[in-house]
Design a protein around this nucleic acid. Structure first.
Lengths: 196, 196
DNA sequence: CACAGTAATGACACTCAGGGCCAAAAGTCG
DNA sequence: CGACTTTTGGCCCTGAGTGTCATTACTGTG
């Protein structure tokens, strides 16, 4: 989102996205998302409310962190997939790799998704993010099939891939011990059986 | 949502959901959704702003009309499906019947979905509606398979069914002459091929 | 017909998200 | 030190949503 080399001119920044995110999550844990005002988050970071809105477009955007960056990563994964691979395989593999946070980042990822998927306002806001994610898939499918990104198949594969991912995520969050990657596999296998 | 026999006591109601919906759509068409204030809608109906919020929980709920009622209908359709039918068939048939608005209601339905799917705020809000719709499917799948409604397969079938429906809707709205029912069929067939 | 009971209405006031505007702050560079 | 640059944050406004409560407009009864 903001990978510019940071010109050293002008007044220095007062905070970072990460710092705001951290403070916000602390407050969300304490009082809940709806009960935490943007004012409180800003105060907790030590910045003005107005400044916080320059780092995040809305309160709903805070839990998503720098999502746009990871979208670029997703796009690369798909582009790098071997051209010989069947389409459904390359999409499937990309989904697995995209969601493969190491043991290091997994806890924060779980915290983030847990908050998002359990908070109505955030669930709602998420579709706008999901739409971008689906777009990346649709573009890839269109590219490999020669169809337009708006044609039925690319759009459908995008939607269905998201559907599988969300199923897996919901189960993962509900079951502490489960493995997200296994679940993605299972969800896809289940769908295949179901349709057969 | 509100099928009580209308007790004849007390002060009579000043309006109806339908009347508000109509006035709102007229204003949305004129100025756009975001540019139309709740105040303006209320004024156009001739009621107070506070009263409007007793009919609809939020501005975002207005375009959905009485969605809860149609959910009950969807539940009935699924419950009535022949027990012999394969699961994926009963879900598929139910989706077709649920989305089969006659030529009478189709234009208003198109208008409604067109507004929702082209307005970010409404797209976002819709997930909360979709979640209920998915729940109906998950319950049905759980019922027929003996699984719990929260298990992976029922949840997945719910998500994927929604995915197919949304793909079809997006294409339908983008192509005036297309047939929604055909598109639902095509989307499902496309997915089957894709996975095979 | 008056009067009690009932239920919806709408005015008022308040909180909070979001955004436009702009003067002040806090750096760097020559 | 002074010019330049960029971020900050204060001020103020709009609009959604909610609690409270007096008022309104009915119905049904004596």
């Amino acid at each position: 989102m903001d990978q510019r080399p940071r010109p050293t001119r002008g007044r220095p920044v007062a905070t970072t996205h990460e710092e705001i995110e951290e403070a916000a999550f602390r407050l969300f844990d304490e009082r809940g998302f709806a009960e935490t005002t943007v004012e409180a988050i800003a105060e907790s970071v030590g910045i003005g409310r107005r400044t916080l809105f320059r780092y995040f477009d809305s309160k709903n955007d805070i839990p998503w962190g720098r999502f746009a960056d990871s979208l670029d990563h997703f796009r690369e994964i798909l582009a790098d997939s071997p051209p010989g691979l069947p389409l459904h395989e390359s999409v499937h593999q990309a989904m697995l790799r995209f969601n493969d946070f190491g043991p290091h980042a997994a806890p924060q990822h779980r915290r983030r998704m847990g908050l998002i998927l359990s908070t109505p306002a955030l669930q709602a806001h998420s579709v706008l993010r999901y739409a971008q994610w689906r777009g990346v898939i649709a573009d890839h499918v269109a590219d490999r099939t020669g169809l337009a990104p708006g044609d039925l198949l690319p759009v459908t594969v995008g939607h269905v891939s998201l559907a599988l991912a969300l199923s897996a995520y919901e189960f993962w969050l509900a079951h502490e011990e489960s493995d997200l990657l296994d679940l993605l596999d299972s969800a896809m296998a289940g769908l295949r059986d179901h349709l057969a």
